[in-house]
Design a protein around this nucleic acid. Structure first.
Lengths: 248, 248
DNA sequence: CGGGGGGTTGATCTCCTTCAATCAACGTGG
DNA sequence: CCACGTTGATTGAAGGAGATCAACCCCCCG
């Protein structure tokens, strides 16, 4: 349960803000009780590393609050973001020893962690967990494939529009069901992080955001506060079907 | 079991060439028997569509022999490959109605199919299948993330080198354990398909392959038959750690 | 007040795309 | 058997989208 400053004020699963979306979403109350025995919370400050690529991973867990990124880095320093971790997203791969990516907190972050071994054992015995994890992994794979189209084939302008529309849609899905007037949200990423997400330089990100603003596709208040007057227009700019590909 | 022309000559799971790698890898013999009751084979000619994006999917299945691609297409015709399906790879997503991508056979293809409903029911009752599918999905997700780095941050030359090294390594892992002399393999993709894989134009692909050949990184016999005299060199060109990031 | 992080904007350069010509291999029908 | 069309691939010339290098702004904080 969160108070208005996003502090976790209770550690009981029944109160948990991500109870219905995380790996544990399908668990019955007795299963939750057993999870509760092996779980613990960890906090990370904005900017700090949660996991270093190559390090031994001895826990897995869920993002409870805050935002983290999954990034890959080449020897010469080029980096590419490969995952954006939001509340309820799962971190770590059961069955693997070492971490494959850097995980960095971009805001203050709270994680609900499980030591890897006990979690793996519990997963063996608890189909509800394994099934939910499969479902979440398939969703991530779909997101990764969408992202590959963005990286491989879209122009800089389309890339920015795509990112904005992803953030806008997600934000709308988390915050209660506003009817569709103008969408308003805050960018959770710096220009540099957006560039790492989209395979661009931060200068190009800045220019394209300015261009979208100039063209009335978005409105900006400060650097981070965005208003989208017309979501359909934004999705056109993103090169997406504006009728939102409805897949069940 | 395959004869030298890649025809499936037996439909018994115990003889199946992908028995130990596909979704069914972990199944006990009684589980295989039940799978055998709901499975059927389908063949597709090179170039034909296995699945059309948006269509209703009523089966899932495994590639038995041949190669297929998973692609996404934008309204204006730009396409991006988002998956390369090799023998033992799984096609389709349990729990989803419509297909999200086009699946196209690039060679003659044999699939081992299951009607979706019965397979989903069986998955519920058979943890061996669900666990194996989770494992395979996690591997695909890793591959997709590797691919995202390639698409977002590598140069055309590095992209080609990356693709060649991926194909070379996979080929080495399928064919018996040759010691490390020069690697030899055939490209399973046209220049155009490679371009769709890498987010390039086919002209750029052609130029960069010529350049790698000119520089002695690879040797070409015809258009498709490749020899890699020095794998370490190729991986340097790909911008990868040549000591091959060993993750357990 | 100075300094640093995040952001914007400008000028130039370059790598890749685009458009186009050419080629080799292959099949087909007259 | 040869002319013809087709398909996949190579190569060249020209142009452009985005990278690179650099100056500068804004705002917060010590």
């Amino acid at each position: 349960m969160l108070n208005e400053k996003n502090f976790v004020v209770s550690h009981e699963c029944s109160d948990c803000p991500i109870r219905h979306r995380a790996v544990c979403a399908r668990c019955e109350s007795d299963e939750l009780t057993r999870l509760e025995e092996i779980k613990y919370y960890r906090k990370f400050e904005a900017g700090s590393h949660v996991i270093w690529s190559g390090d031994r991973m001895d826990f897995v867990g869920s993002v409870v609050s805050g935002i983290a990124t999954l990034t890959q880095t080449m020897e010469d320093g080029r980096t590419q973001m490969v995952g954006l971790l939001l509340p309820s997203d799962f971190v770590g791969r059961p069955g693997r020893e070492g971490a494959a990516y850097d995980v960095v907190a971009t805001t203050d972050l709270t994680m609900c962690c499980f030591r890897k071994k006990p979690f793996e054992e519990m997963m063996q015995r608890t189909p509800h967990i394994a099934h939910r994890l499969l479902e979440m992994t398939l969703d991530e794979l779909d997101a990764a494939r969408e992202w590959m189209l963005v990286l491989g084939r879209k122009t800089a302008r389309e890339k920015i529009a795509s990112l904005l529309s992803i953030i806008a849609r997600r934000d709308a899905s988390i915050h209660p069901g506003k009817v569709d007037g103008p969408l308003v949200f805050d960018l959770p990423l710096t220009r540099e992080a957006m560039a790492d997400y989209l395979g661009l330089t931060l200068e190009t990100v800045s220019r394209q955001i300015s261009a979208l603003k100039r063209d009335g596709v978005i409105e900006l208040e400060g650097k981070r506060h965005v208003t989208v007057p017309n979501m359909g227009r934004l999705m056109e700019e993103a090169g997406d079907d504006s009728d939102g590909g409805m897949l069940v």
